[in-house]
Write a protein that binds this DNA or RNA. Structure first.
Lengths: 145, 145
DNA sequence: TATTGTTATACTCTATAACTATA
DNA sequence: TATAGTTATAGAGTATAACAATA
């Protein structure tokens, strides 16, 4: 067992997580960037496109396109901003809110299926290993080593 | 520490891994799908576009586009297939082979920076935790539970 | 002057369908 | 008849730059 083996395991796990996300997206016929926008909206409430651009780290132009698509699919609406007539309030519809709710349930169900049978000690062991790996990654990416 | 907390940690780690990949791609001005193709080519040697389509799980049409881009950027060439005149042998150039080699080095360097200081016991602990998480994921995705 | 969001333009990834050349 | 790869067409995500309306 080498450090490279360990990194390969991390990558393998990352691929599995991604694959599981894609399953949800295909079932609900929504793309990854749009899910990301809906999720952000679910956490923050009605938001300007500018604030969504900052949150998703994409350009405002890109948000225009994502919101266009989500308006067409019935997940969000553009409402007038209460105080700033330049801005719009992107708002979840019932359909959009239901999808976010589904996403939360699905996440909790996956967690229960994966780890629900573990006792507290095992949970703590796994969590500790992941915490330390995450901390190492963050340190490396922030400081360069 | 709940099962949902643990899944959140897995997701957080997955995001960090992805972010690190993107750093490499931006440095080398190559996109994720093209890196994937180059990596496959590095492992398999000169390949037909058909076999690349199977390996990357995309359509043959898509491979045409990726190879077009990589020919333009000088990372691969299209060579005649030795025995089948319908097919082409996509082949790494020196530049392409150097990039794959960089990717391997970068991967090993990241592993060393992240985990190089761990003793065998810690490596085994981390690996065991990841192995079990991976095994649970795989079982879940294959059998539905 | 600065900010919000849009139109204009362009590139990449992705897909399906129809077609050519070859097997 | 089947296979390898292309052209044709389309949609989604991404970016920069120029612009209109509003602050």
């Amino acid at each position: 067992m080498t450090s490279t083996n360990l990194l390969d395991k991390v990558l393998a796990l990352s691929l599995l997580v991604t694959a599981d996300m894609q399953r949800f997206e295909q079932e609900h016929k929504v793309t990854t960037p749009r899910i990301h926008l809906l999720w952000t909206l679910g956490a923050a409430g009605p938001s300007t496109q500018r604030s969504l651009a900052d949150a998703l780290e994409v350009t405002p132009r890109n948000i225009t396109g994502l919101v266009d698509g989500l308006v067409t699919s019935g997940h969000v609406t553009r409402e007038p901003h209460p105080t700033d007539r330049r801005a719009t309030h992107v708002t979840l519809t019932e359909v959009g809110a239901a999808l976010v709710s589904d996403l939360r349930s699905s996440h909790a169900a996956l967690a229960a299926q994966l780890f629900g049978d573990l006792d507290d000690g095992r949970l703590a062991d796994f969590g500790g290993a992941l915490d330390e790996t995450i901390a190492r990654f963050v340190r490396l990416m922030e400081t360069g080593s």
